[in-house]
C-alpha cells in the first residue's frame, strides 16, 4: 500500500505548528497504525529529519497512552485504540490526516503528544476510597450483587486515553469523570465518601477547563472500552443529590 500522511507537526508547546505531508510506501496491511508510523520515523531519521513524536506504550490497547485523531476521529475509524488499529482498515492511495487531541485541558507537548495530567488531578480530587494499607475487613465480608459488580467493572474499564474528550465537540471530560464516580458510587466501599467525591471531582473537572456535556453521545461511540453515557447520567444524579444534601458549604 501507498499512503499520504498529513501530520500535525509542532516543535514544542509554544510553537505555532502546522501540517506536513509525508508519502509512505510499502505499507503492509498487517501493520498496526503505530508500526506504520514507526516505519515513517525510521525513514525520517535516516534522512536526518526529526521523527514524528507520538505517545504509545503497551500497544495492546490497555495502557491508554496512545492517542491520535485520525481522519476526524479519535483512534481512527474503528472503536478501538490506535495501537490496535491495523492498516487493513485503510485503502491503497488514501490520504490520512493525523492530529493531536485538541482540548484546552490537554496542551500539546510536541507534535502529536499532549499532556493529559488533568485526568490525574481529577482522580486526585476524589477518585479513590480512603482506606490505608492494612486494617481492612476480609474480602468476602462485603458481598456485592453480581450485576452491581459487573456495572462497576464496566465503568472501571476506562483506560484514561482521553478519546472521549477528543471526540466531544465541547472537549468535555464527563465520560472519564463519570466512569470513576460511577464505579465508586455503585460499590458499597464507595458509599462513605460518595457525596464529597462527586462534588470534588466535578469541581476539579471544571477547574481543568473541560467543556460541558451536550449529550451528543460521541464520547460513548468513540470510547475504545465502550464506556456508556449511562455513567454521565449517574454522575449527574450523584452530583445533584450531593450538592443538595451534603454539608459541604
Amino acid at each position: 500500500m501507498q499512503l499520504t500522511l498529513k501530520i500535525w507537526r509542532q516543535k514544542n508547546a509554544s510553537d505555532k505548528g502546522g501540517f506536513v505531508t509525508y508519502p509512505v510506501k510499502d505499507v503492509s496491511k498487517d501493520m498496526s497504525f503505530l508500526e506504520m508510523l514507526d516505519v515513517l520515523n525510521e525513514g525520517l531519521i535516516e534522512k536526518g529529519e526529526d521523527p514524528v513524536h507520538f505517545d504509545h506504550d503497551c500497544r495492546e490497547g490497555i495502557c491508554g497512552t496512545c492517542s491520535l485523531y485520525i481522519n476526524g476521529k479519535p483512534h481512527g475509524p474503528l472503536q478501538t485504540t490506535t495501537c490496535q488499529l491495523h492498516m487493513r482498515s485503510f485503502s491503497d492511495g488514501q490520504t490520512i490526516t493525523i492530529e493531536p487531541w485538541r482540548a484546552k485541558a490537554f496542551p500539546i507537548v510536541k507534535d502529536l503528544v499532549v499532556n493529559r495530567s488533568a485526568f490525574d488531578r481529577i482522580i486526585q480530587a476524589g477518585g479513590y476510597v480512603s482506606v490505608g494499607t492494612g486494617g481492612v475487613p476480609d474480602a468476602n465480608e462485603i458481598p456485592i450483587p453480581k450485576n452491581i459488580a459487573d456495572l462497576a467493572m464496566d465503568a472501571a474499564q476506562c483506560i484514561g486515553c482521553g478519546a472521549c474528550v477528543a471526540a466531544c465537540k465541547n472537549a468535555s471530560a464527563m465520560l472519564f469523570t463519570s466512569a470513576k464516580i460511577s464505579q465508586l458510587a455503585l460499590l458499597p466501599q464507595g458509599q462513605v465518601e460518595r457525596k464529597t467525591r462527586a462534588e470534588k471531582m466535578v469541581a476539579q473537572m471544571d477547574a481543568e477547563g473541560f467543556g460541558a456535556c451536550t449529550n451528543t453521545g460521541a464520547c460513548e461511540a468513540e470510547c475504545p472500552k465502550g464506556i456508556s453515557i449511562t455513567n454521565i447520567a449517574r454522575m449527574n444524579r450523584e452530583y445533584f443529590s450531593a450538592v443538595l444534601s451534603s454539608e459541604n458549604i
Binding site: N140, P143, Q189
Partner: peptide, 22 residues
C-alpha cells in the same frame, strides 16, 4: 490473602458469584 482484602476495600471490581461473594 491480605492483598485481596486490600484491593476489595479499595473498590477493585473483582468477578463475583451470584451470591455476591468473590
Amino acid at each position: 490473602v491480605k492483598i485481596i482484602d486490600q484491593c476489595v476495600a479499595q473498590g477493585v471490581p473483582f468477578a463475583r458469584e451470584y451470591g455476591g461473594l468473590l
